[in-house]
Design a protein around this nucleic acid. Structure first.
Lengths: 119, 119
DNA sequence: CATAGAGGTTTATTGCAATAAACCATGGGG
DNA sequence: CCCCATGGTTTATTGCAATAAACCTCTATG
């Protein structure tokens, strides 16, 4: 694992891998053909590029992610907050919740998470 | 205003406009030259493209945004939630807050926002 | 009345992510 | 023993965002 910035195509690809891993590489080319319309060489190119970046590995024709979905989610959420909200969670929530209603369930779930994150 | 999907360069550009608007176009080329390293034709190309998309307007050499920063913030946050968090705010927060600590102040501010968004 | 700067447009060029074509090696089954 | 599927690599090609060069008109002004 290193730099977690993923391009769109890379993200879609990883999404499939997270769902199927560990997955045989030939099987993966077939799934990508079906779900993304990719030719097999495209899939292998992706495998190699992401392997070089230590984002996944391909051993004995078995592809496995080296980064967890949660790591990428964390990276992407922080990246968005930095880019567009000056890193501020309240600012983000204010924009996101604008005119939105939360269910009691969701609200409680969130309240609990905020509590847990408070020293 | 129409499609709010902005490319990176477009976003940086709009960021400058939100800060300065209403801003004279020649002045804008100078600021972009300084802050983004853009030649003046690059800035005018951007102005035209974003005008066509009704994201800003240029009238009598005065450039003004037609979309508010908050609209784009909302769009971008929803786009990310859809792409990477199954649209779920709790999932997003769980990833973002992972191993993070919030100050009491921030926590209270957020709790209040959640309350307000709860029917 | 030329000329410099403001305020553009038209038309490339560049750069890089995305995608693929073409080729290669190996091992197991008819 | 040959041929076909598996499991790749090497080397383009494509597509489009990003950037810019070159050119144009108008107006104030020395």
């Amino acid at each position: 694992m290193e730099e977690l910035k993923l391009f769109d195509a890379e993200y879609k690809f990883l999404d499939i891998i997270w769902e199927l891993e560990p997955v045989n590489s030939t099987e993966l080319t077939k799934v990508c053909m079906q779900k993304l319309g990719w030719k097999k060489s495209t899939t292998y190119t992706m495998i190699r590029k992401l392997s070089e970046r230590r984002i996944l590995k391909n051993e004995n024709a078995t592809v496995t992610a080296l980064v967890k979905r949660e790591q990428v989610q964390k990276y992407e959420s922080e990246a968005l907050l930095d880019k567009a909200f000056d890193g501020s969670l309240p600012t983000f929530l204010s924009a996101f919740l604008h005119d939105k209603k939360l269910s009691k369930q969701q609200a409680e779930e969130i309240q609990k998470m905020i509590e847990d994150a408070t020293k």
